[in-house]
């Protein structure tokens, strides 16, 4: 009897210092990269550290670098990403490594906050939510980026984040763009100030890696372009007002 088909899996073990360890996993017709990692942890390497929660592409916690490319592993099918029968799985780029496939996401979420990512409405929880018109340009711009699951795939794929540690990154700027366009958010100006400051949207090179990699099809590149336009107009307007125009 022929032996069942196998998958050659190389997984990064360790933190910054470490090595790839080879494992053999069963190859199934229908399996995701996360299925493979889970199988290895359950059957071959109980100490293997990795993150996941929902397994259906909602929580954004299972992103890893698979064969050189950042992906959400729960919805990446092995047959779509395998190369020569091999999967090379590493932690995400641009984030501090903790152990094996687990990164420290604190810098990612710190920047999200630094970009003014926290929503603040005018009302209290006792008042009804204000109605928003879905057909305005601003709402459409906000809706285009609102489904971000904060998986940090874009952050990992962005070259500018690698070059400039202070750069806010695509996810935080995309979040900022949704808030700038949200009529219910009362701190749109503060958001614009935050993304216009050093490390903000001006650093984007419009490479489009974030858009190319985003698993849910968002275009942070477009969001950042919007922020650039808006912040340019704002800084010019401010200069103008300081000189006595538009008062």
């Amino acid at each position: 009897m022929a032996s069942p088909p196998k998958l050659d899996v190389r997984i990064w073990r360790g933190a910054d210092a470490g090595e790839f360890v080879a494992y053999e996993a069963p190859l199934a017709e229908n399996q995701t990269v996360l299925d493979v990692v889970t199988w290895i942890q359950r059957h071959r390497e109980p100490a293997l550290a990795y993150r996941f929660a929902c397994r259906v592409g909602v929580c954004g916690s299972c992103a890893m670098t698979v064969n050189g490319r950042a992906r959400w592993t729960c919805r990446s099918h092995v047959k779509d990403v395998v190369a020569d029968g091999r999967l090379v799985i590493e932690p995400l780029r641009n984030l501090p490594r903790i152990k094996d496939l687990v990164c420290d996401l604190a810098p990612f979420f710190d920047k999200w906050r630094r970009a003014g990512g926290r929503f603040e409405g005018a009302g209290t929880r006792r008042e009804p939510m204000p109605a928003t018109d879905p057909d305005t340009d601003a709402r459409r711009a906000a809706d285009a980026g609102i489904e971000c699951i904060n998986c940090a795939v874009c952050y990992s794929a962005c070259d500018v984040v690698g070059w400039r540690p202070d750069y806010l990154g695509p996810a935080a700027l995309n979040r900022a763009w949704t808030l700038v366009n949200d009529e219910r958010h009362v701190k749109a100006r503060e958001v614009l100030d935050a993304v216009t400051a050093g490390g903000g949207c001006a650093l984007c090179h419009t490479h489009g890696n974030c858009t190319e990699h985003c698993p849910v099809g968002i275009s942070p590149t477009a969001a950042i372009a919007g922020l650039k336009r808006r912040s340019l107009r704002r800084s010019l307007g401010r200069r103008w007002r300081r000189r006595g125009g538009w008062t």
Binding site: T196, A202, K228, S231, L232, S235
Partner: peptide
């Protein structure tokens, strides 16, 4: 000169 001003100057 602020980064924002430099960005504005470069864009213009």
């Amino acid at each position: 000169m602020s980064e924002a001003a430099l960005f504005a100057l470069q864009r213009l």
